[in-house]
Write a protein that binds this DNA or RNA. Structure first.
Length: 494
RNA sequence: GUAGAUAUAGCUCAGCUGGUUAGAGCGUCGGAUUGUGAUUCCGAAGGUCGUGGGUUCGAGCCCCAUUAUUUACCCCA
């Protein structure tokens, strides 16, 4: 057998001990906050049936799903003597769309929200609503990897389904800021917007065509600037008049409250304008006629403003203090197609990294699985991006990577035997400890401790053993003390 | 899917218009030091120069192809 060069699939990574320890540090903080807010853990399978996943993330998302080839001979099926072709020449001619469902019926999960919705529907009889769950598992996307983007990455989701209450939205903001604070991140922005406000913009422009084109374009405002957005919208068929109108809406300035109220006023003014789309015309004021369908849509969209305000009021009632980190951003769009209400995103400032968290309310995700009328809201941390941010900002605590706290040096055969009970007592005291597994040069053993970041080394050579004492070296300072075992435990446990 | 960049030791990278035997730092291993790491000193191992073709008297360097990695677009955590 010839040796092959080992390699990893594109966009995947190994995680060595130090990295895992630091990821666990992040997981720990997130899990603690989620549990503190009353969310219970859930895990779902890596594989889902493709029928569960497809159509939930938009066209783009479907393409990014990893599909898993059916087991066995996926081209033919044999029953008794009858061999049935699964994939016919006609299918092949018709292309991948026709062939794919016949050869792949499973896929890797793309996020945690859709599997959660599936779980809720399948277990509706046994769940107590509102149902709050958190979920920390990897997800897969067949994307081209680049900075902060991997094909396999961890998401930490917290979602609640079965209630419309905007308290949940407010608590999401609280959880977001609490996690970021605990991680030592200070310069961040939690952006909030509402799908209905976005739809309202679309309505106010009297635009036609795909809403999503508009959302995707304005979402890029801070990246490609007004000119870029104009160009993109022109290309999608938006008139100069509409674009001009859009920017007058988006020009709102000031703090959270100012921006929101100003935009709301502009929007409500525009509702009162005559509209020319099809529908039943009816009279509203002073003999003017309005298209009823558009008017009703517009009124419905206006609720977006009320909801954001309520979330804000909840936060004030909570004595939330970090309003400086909270921004109402009417350009925030988010691509996932299932959002219907408030939407969130977190940007870590002064780090070249996409959003580290995103989420929102989805009114009818369970409807796709036959359970309509169950509203849900949730969000997700991208741990891999958080990790990259913490690393770039040097915010990992120095002991986050350490597992062993005390290395017991190994002098010789008798020494090794004498240290075994000591090792046991260290461990019983809850001190992560290891005995260097072979007698040998102390230099090597200290190097080992240094390389692993072990803070203490415990030694007992013949001299110390004669006095019934130990020598404890603190690696960071190089200081050594001669101590009894009790004293050693006290120092090491501190 | 589209476009660019890169590929030389375990890692990070030098390598002159194309010219003898391809270098450094870090790491690893050995020694100075058989009771002391990070710091000091000495030494050693480690390379089909991504792969396959081509040009040339001669290719790490030039050309073509290919694979991988990476950045950006699209989209997203």
């Amino acid at each position: 057998m010839s040796a092959q060069k080992p390699s990893l699939p594109q966009g995947t990574r190994d995680f060595g001990p130090a990295v895992v320890a630091r990821r666990n540090y992040i997981f720990g903080i997130i899990r603690r906050v989620f549990e503190k807010f009353g969310y219970a853990p859930l895990e779902t399978p890596t594989l889902e049936n493709l029928s569960v996943l497809t159509g939930k993330y938009g066209e783009e998302g479907d393409q990014l799903l990893f599909k898993v080839l059916n087991s066995g001979n996926f081209l033919k099926k044999q029953k008794g003597d009858v061999i049935k072709e699964e994939v016919t020449p006609d299918d092949l001619l018709a292309g991948p769309k026709k062939v794919l469902p016949k050869i792949a019926e499973k896929g890797l999960r793309y996020d945690l929200t859709v599997p959660f919705a599936r779980y809720v529907v399948m277990n509706r009889g046994t769940l107590t609503f509102p149902f709050k769950r958190y979920q920390i598992q990897p997800v897969w996307r067949a994307d081209r990897p680049q900075r902060g983007r991997y094909r396999e990455f961890y998401q930490c989701d917290a979602d609640v389904v079965g209630t419309d209450s905007l308290l949940c939205e407010a608590e999401i903001v609280l959880m977001m800021s609490e996690v970021l604070n605990a991680l030592g991140l200070t310069d961040y922005t939690i952006k909030i917007n509402h799908r209905k406000i976005l739809s309202g913009l679309y309505e106010a422009l009297r635009a036609e065509g795909k809403e999503a084109d508009l959302f995707v374009a304005i979402d890029k405002l801070d990246k490609i600037g007004p000119n870029g957005v104009s160009e993109e919208l022109s290309a999608k068929g938006y008139s100069n008049d509409m674009i001009k109108r859009l920017f007058s809406f988006l020009s709102v300035k000031g703090n959270f409250h100012d921006k929101l109220t100003e935009l709301e006023k502009m929007y409500k003014d525009s509702i009162g304008e005559l509209r020319d789309d099809s529908g039943i015309w009816f009279e509203i004021v002073e003999g003017q006629q309005y298209a009823k369908s558009g008017f009703i849509r517009a009124l419905e969209n206006a609720r977006g403003f009320d909801e954001i305000k309520k979330v804000y009021n909840y936060l004030q009632a909570f004595d939330f203090t970090q309003f400086d980190n909270l921004e109402f951003d009417p350009t925030l769009a988010r691509g996932l197609s299932y959002y219907t209400g408030c939407i969130f995103e977190i940007k870590i400032n002064n780090v070249n990294m996409g959003s580290v968290s995103g989420g929102g309310r989805y009114d009818n995700l369970t409807g796709a699985f036959g359970l309509p009328g169950v509203s849900g809201v949730g969000f997700s941390f991208g741990v891999d991006r958080l990790y990259d941010c913490l690393e770039e900002l040097n915010l990992f605590p120095s002991d986050a990577a350490t597992t062993t706290r005390c290395l017991v040096a190994n002098f010789d055969v008798e020494g090794e035997r004498a240290m075994l009970p000591v090792l046991r007592q260290l461990r019983e005291a809850g001190v992560a400890s290891e005995l260097y597994p072979e007698a040998g040069k102390l230099g090597r053993q200290f190097k080992y401790a240094d390389a692993k970041g072990i803070p203490f080394v415990l030694l007992q050579g013949s001299e110390e053993r004669a006095q019934g004492r130990f020598k404890l070296k603190t690696m960071s300072t190089g200081q050594e003390q001669t101590l009894t075992l009790e004293e050693v435990l006290a120092v090491v446990q501190a």
